[in-house]
Design a protein around this nucleic acid. Sequence first.
DNA 1: GCGGCGCTCCGCCGCGAGAATGATATCACA
DNA 2: TGTGATATCATTCTCGCGGCGGAGCGCCGC
Lengths: 217, 217
Amino acid sequence: MMTMTAPIRILVVDDHPGFRAGLVAMVESSGEMKVVAEGGDCAQAIEAYKRHRPDITLMDLRLPDMSGVEGVMALRAHDPQCQVIVITTYDADEDIYRALQAGAKSYLLKEMTAEELRSAILAVARGETPLPAQVAQRLASRMSRPALTRRELDMVRLIVRGFSNKEIASEFGITEDTVKGHLKHLFVKLGVKDRTQAAIVALQQGIIHLWSASTDR
Amino acid sequence: MMTMTAPIRILVVDDHPGFRAGLVAMVESSGEMKVVAEGGDCAQAIEAYKRHRPDITLMDLRLPDMSGVEGVMALRAHDPQCQVIVITTYDADEDIYRALQAGAKSYLLKEMTAEELRSAILAVARGETPLPAQVAQRLASRMSRPALTRRELDMVRLIVRGFSNKEIASEFGITEDTVKGHLKHLFVKLGVKDRTQAAIVALQQGIIHLWSASTDR
DNA sequence: GCGGCGCTCCGCCGCGAGAATGATATCACA
DNA sequence: TGTGATATCATTCTCGCGGCGGAGCGCCGC
């Protein structure tokens, strides 16, 4: 049985040793919480979670082995009760949406202060889902935007990789006219006029990422 | 007169309080160096530099008020002898090139360990310019690439903002044919076939950034 | 059952984009 | 002085892109 005064036990997952050290310092500057384990990728995170059963997990979105969203889902698949707070530099609305969708309890930006971090951890420990004003605002803008269909996502992914309409068509085994139809809808939803702007907007909003669309990184 | 055993005095500039704390922890885990001041943007950095005259400045590339490259130039304009180490998540070759061009003595990625950081600081303090293998490799690939002219840079900037050839032409007061000519050269240099791919490649290589091309961020 | 939505396919049509080629002026540098 | 790089403007041509309208099919939910 956990008493009221027992410190909150925390797992930190980030591929930057420097930022991990910073998180540890911020967390442990107060006696009410302590870091019990650290990890640099999702595999280590799951391993550490099983061993230490932390009350709260702080997780970066961009990790070497898989995305933080996948990491959150993996942790929740293993323990649906786990409390994950995503901490990242990426404030694109789609990233926020997906992370919360995956089951994250909060979404913080790396610009946050130590006080903001600790108050968010305490709130999540109380069962709340605190969202900073800036993040909540971006999430709202995501909500008011029409969702892209699977096909439209396929389109924008290949557009960013430089595919022509014909190449996209043969990639999916459909007609070029069908591709044009999807693009038409895509442009309307993104509020753009051509494929180039569609690619840029998709990158800005976090719908796709350069590190997943390019050959390496 | 500084003696051999006096600690190296360091200024840390990063807009993330968490990462600043991590850098401080990593630096001060050894007695041979200490952080004498911190800053969250370039203005604070220059202010702190004038007051504390640090031996070495650790600077992030992305800052709220101006880019880290501008920050390096500003510091060196004030004191050409200043020793700046850029520390960033961005490993695009153009970023590396510009930072070193601006006078940075080293370029480290945030994935580095505490040991790598400290050895780089010691090396710079000795007058060397240490570059991690990964960074050196990307810098080399940048070197083997033809440099873009000023006009070609103008082109790619407006392409990323969704301008058509006609709009680009009127923006600069030149003919659409001239724009086409520049684009032709640009495509060859970037190794692409159309404006969409040019935009993507320019973003990947760090020639331009979404946060400087879009309306906000 | 029926409407709505997503996916598919079809036509027509205008325009912008890019390829090919050539010419001229300027400037830096050898 | 000549050579190369840069920037400018021009002509012609082809083709991919995107606009516009229509239409059939399957799935899901009310």
